[in-house]
Design a protein around this nucleic acid. Structure first.
Lengths: 338, 338
DNA sequence: CTGAAAGCGCTTACAG
DNA sequence: CTGAAAGCGCTTACAG
């Protein structure tokens, strides 16, 4: 293994000079700098990460803590993951992906062993038990998902209440007066998925204001259950003309359900979903939807985190960024049938 | 920050004794061991990862190098990722997820900085330029995907030739004599996705042996292109009664295509795919398919890697494990229509 | 059964 | 503009 001592020897300078020549933290004569650079190239030197971490108390690694529950719809997570890892690398950081069930234990272990400089928490729950641990950790954090009490931590999320209102308004504008909302399963809420009820409550409220009837349901997170659920909801409300989906599995299952009922979209029924653009493209979902902006949220969380990491005693105020929802039009919205 | 020095002081022993008491690498009197354990608990001590890595030349971290290309079907990757991260953690390792475009540079950087103890390479290409770098690295590696020359590295993959043969045989057994195979896009092969032609070649060969007509095509990796492709293939071969899909996007798009053509599966056409079980469940794919065993392959790769990491001068022979394909029955196979 | 000391490979005050 | 030395927090031969 080639060390900075080898570089120094090859360049004919001291180790400290070699180190400074590399970091640029003090002025070095051009000749010395050139010699060191040459030695680095010749010997193919790369600093030892562990040694550097020990000396500087910085690792250039961030941790991404996910919650990948067996009964949830994990694939939507990939967009967040790639947004985080890609942006982190652009800013000079690597990403430790932590999928451990026990997020509290993982956070504690990784924080106190000083393996990383900061944390991004995915899939943050309303009452997330990782937050108290994060607040006490010496490293900063950023949240993907708005908890009940975000106090002191940067948060990035879609504005779910605004999304719910927007979905209802859009349907109303097209002339729909009776809608069905299919949310994610109840157990997602029970586990702290607050965005589910935030969207649903806001949709209900806006519907009331606009004089629109809204039937609100929870659907399963996978087939074949969710297909049965959709059929059940459609059976129960034959006069409903619009479907709002805050449930990726329902969106994936809907084409089959509509086909089996002989319904065409948007001629017979209008549909608007809430999922990421990439997700829609990859899974061939033909429905207009509020883009969940997973990639962008992931990138922004990393940017905020890195800023806090790099200005240590940062007194900069905490950010709560809720992205304004926008409907990506895929032609699934039209006037209701006569 | 609490160090082993603090623990030693609290327990009234030397730092080395505290260290040995923790590692168990030499016999310690019960009293001392109890005192150290108590101090660790009281002070909430966790070893500093950087310091430990420097002293032991081991990090307890593995790197997972993916290739997440914009025009490929990334979601299928998540199963591999979770298989790797979960199994790694069970074995005491954390996982650095590397999504960098330039895999060679990433491998070089991470290897020479000694950030990890080993590498798992995802999405390995026929002629993967990361392999020469990996062979020269001081850390061991394991591959998910069989390259043209796997020499010296453990490999884990589905047996794609066997999968192709099995798909054809199964159709033949049900009485089908004219089939359409839809593979992944040509650019996936050009980029080194050898499994695509391995499956296709083997399917063609087996079809010839059995006297079955096989029309072999490439389909796009996303909508709406892949939907158009499917329609084109079906138009071109109206007498074909079976569809083989080695293309996740095609599988996701097919339900709509069949519905729009008024075709029922399996009454009018039989379908068999190749994708992971979870994938099928989550995306509501109703087709029988060869399970790509992503989770299991990920887990096995980690096991092999950890074994090599932990028995340093391991002379154990290199493994090439090709998982035997199995068809998960979802009722999409039947006799052809009269 | 335990301790004092060296060493892992860096960075960075301290001195000149 | 440069060097010698201390120190980051561990582990592990070496000694007793």
């Amino acid at each position: 293994m080639v060390t900075i001592g080898d570089v120094a020897a090859a360049a004919g300078v001291s180790r400290s000079t070699a180190s400074y020549a590399l970091s640029g933290k003090r002025t070095i004569s051009p000749e010395v700098r050139a010699k060191v650079a040459e030695a680095v190239r010749d010997l193919n030197y790369t600093p030892n990460a562990g040694a550097r971490a020990l000396a500087t108390a910085r690792t250039s690694v961030i941790a991404l803590l996910g919650r990948f529950l067996a009964d949830e719809f994990a694939p939507a997570m990939l967009q967040y993951i790639l947004g985080v890892t890609n942006r982190a690398r652009e800013l000079g950081y690597d990403t430790l992906l932590v999928s451990e069930d026990d997020g509290v234990a993982a956070l504690q272990r990784i924080s106190s062993s000083r393996m990383v400089d900061g944390f991004v928490l995915l899939n943050v729950a309303e009452n997330d038990d990782r937050l108290p641990v994060l607040r006490n950790a010496p490293q900063p954090g950023a949240l993907l998902g708005l908890p009940g009490d975000p106090d002191g931590i940067d948060v990035f999320d879609l504005d779910f209440p605004a999304a719910g209102a927007l979905m209802v308004e859009t349907m109303h504008t097209h002339g729909h007066r009776e809608l069905i909302l299919v949310s994610q399963p109840l157990h997602v809420i029970e586990r702290g998925g607050a965005y589910v009820w935030r969207l649903a409550d806001s949709a209900r409220e806006r519907a009331a204001e606009l004089g629109v009837t809204l039937h609100s349901y929870f659907g399963a997170a996978s087939q074949p259950e969710v297909g049965r659920d959709l059929n059940r909801f459609l059976d129960a409300h034959p006069s409903a003309t619009g479907l709002l989906l805050n449930n990726e599995a329902a969106a994936a299952a809907l084409p089959n359900v509509l086909a089996s009922r002989g319904l065409k979209c948007p001629e017979d029924i209008s549909v608007v979903g809430r999922y990421s653009d990439d997700f829609a493209r990859m899974f061939s979902l033909p429905y207009s939807a509020v883009d969940s902006a997973a990639d962008e949220l992931g990138r922004r969380a990393v940017e905020a985190l890195v800023q806090r990491i790099e200005q240590r005693h940062s007194t900069s105020p905490v950010h709560i960024e809720l992205i304004r929802p926008m409907i990506q039009d895929r032609g699934s919205l039209a006037a209701p049938p006569k």
